[in-house]
Amino acid sequence: MTETFEFWVSYLTNGRHLNWYASFQYTVIAALLGGAFALLFGIGGAALRNSSLPPLKLLGTIYINMVRGVPDVLFFIFFPLAFEQLVELVIAQSACPAGGGAGVWPPCPEANWFLGTGEYLLLASVSLGIVYGAFTANVISGALNSVPRGQLEAARAFGMTNWQVLSRVHIRQMWVYALPGLSNCWLLLIKATSLLSLLQITDIVRGANLLGAPNFSRTAGVIHGDWRWGYYLALLLFYILVTYLSEKAFAAITRWASRGMPMAERV
């Protein structure tokens, strides 16, 4: 590697690399959107599981136990495909002539739903949300049960309504117990964003693979051998940076959540 500094600057800022840098947005969007969905599904799942109505409780328990056991890769390819075909099936009911197109999918061209990067990104985020929502639900449900009973009884003794107890005392104190578990879920979710290339998205992992693989074609740019290690190293550093920033953010949130809670601040 005796190339000059100028060579590296121009190589690392050519169009192929700019495309790759731009693709980092997919990872960030999938993580943030997936995280938001996971929190939503998590709160929903925990609410179902702690519900006093047996059917809802069963539903919450099934969601939490079943989805946690399915490999995220499998769910990641299953959910978007199943959802796409379900939508196409529904459109086909009205758009397609009856009985046409045996053995082909979609049954007729009118029923085809085209999925581009944007749609796949949304479906990927929902998939991440469903999978990690199950873990989040378990964490939140555990945290709700960890709030000392005495706190809730004291709140009731002050004459608070059930809703006031829930919102002002129960959920307010729950965060301190949930945050360590939530931070685990978040980091697992970030790692799972490396699966985006399974959904036809040219994400950072696929991009690194394409850029780093040996190139012996004059027209495709700089001729080089196997440089994949360099690109994988860059991804490694990116994920470490994201982890570091996440830890900082969770530390700040924990400080915020435990204000006025001397018991929690000690831990």
Binding site: R16, E110, G116, S217, A220, G221
Partner: peptide
Amino acid sequence: LFSTAANAQAIRIGTEGAYEPWNYVNADGN
């Protein structure tokens, strides 16, 4: 919302973009 209106004059062409010199992404990113 998700798809552009079906236009008879517009088609999409699928290619791999990783098989020189047949189809690839050049240094400009195209």
